[in-house]
Amino acid sequence: MDLQILLLLGQDGLTNGAIYALLALALVLVFAVTRVIFLPQGEFVAYGALTLAAIQAGKLPGTVWLAVILGIAVVLIDGGLALKSGNLKRLPRIVLGNLGLPLVLLGLISGLEAEALAALALPLQILLTLGIVVPLGPLLYRLVFQPIAEASSLVLLIVAVALHMTLIGLGLVFFGAEGFRTQPFSDGALEIGPLLLQHQTLWILFASAALIAVLYVLFERTVYGKALRATALNRTGARLMGISTTMAGKLSLGLAAFIGALSGVLVSPMTTLYYDSGFLIGLKGFVGAIIGGLASYPVAALGAVLVGLLESYSSFYASAFKEVIVFTLIIPVLVWRSLTSHHVEEEEE
């Protein structure tokens, strides 16, 4: 193996690792705030990529309907509750907050001709995609996780598995069994010494770094970020301070959906994505998150990059055993974690 191969593999591993790192951050965030091991994280990746692909093909993505239907369900439930308690003033906010964006996007996309939709500027298409997929996070939290927010983490995990299966099935209905690739952000490549960096690779590295920086600022400097951190540290304490755990849950799932959809949009020009591609990508992010003990953001991100590099190098040396090597990594990490960290039994009711 010469230096060039070493560098090429490293670059490939970093690119994938950057995506895994984003997903690992989302997983840590959701787990810290809601105690849900958020398996459906990968589905947001697939939904993001495939929604963008559908828009670029001039088709109305099925995810819009999902957002609208979930929005209606939330409006019916929350609206019903508001009516029952006679709190009519909240109604407009409930309707607008849950159904507004999906309906506007549905009108916008179905109003456009197929050619006009396909010919939209790429940033606009990406915005549309994010606008469709991101609301799914809070809506799903409201419908699926909020009613059982106080359940044990095992129950939450089982529900997350069920949600993962449901979303995969819906993905097949929306997008079909075949894969899609989207247009790259910009064509061409950059030459640095022996390395040929595709522009898309640079986009991925840049966007991941930027997103991590934004998340850092969000958590350190904004009220919402601090509220999320407070909830993660101590739910009861945060509630006593007037922080709504429901709001925190919705916000964390919204962020997770945003990170997932953006990752999907970033990788889809590099590789073909399928309705069920997200799971494996999410799982590798999960290995990274485990390395971080589902608690530490920097360690999780580094762990995810490590997963990406390991994957890349093992695909060169022993391609048949690549997945085995990557997922076996979790065993020594768990052993080391359980030996070094002080274990606290979760309180069960």
Binding site: I5, L8, L9, D12, T15, N16, I19, V267, M270, T271, Y274, D276, S277, F279, L280, I281, E311, S312, Y313, S314, S315, F316, Y317, S319, A320, K322, E323
Partner: peptide, 20 residues
């Protein structure tokens, strides 16, 4: 003789080995 998974997002490693 290299292998990869249906869902893999990259086959750079395998490709480099083939090129070699």
């Amino acid at each position: 003789n290299e292998s990869y998974q249906r869902n893999d997002t990259s086959v750079t490693g395998q490709t480099l080995k083939i090129l070699a």
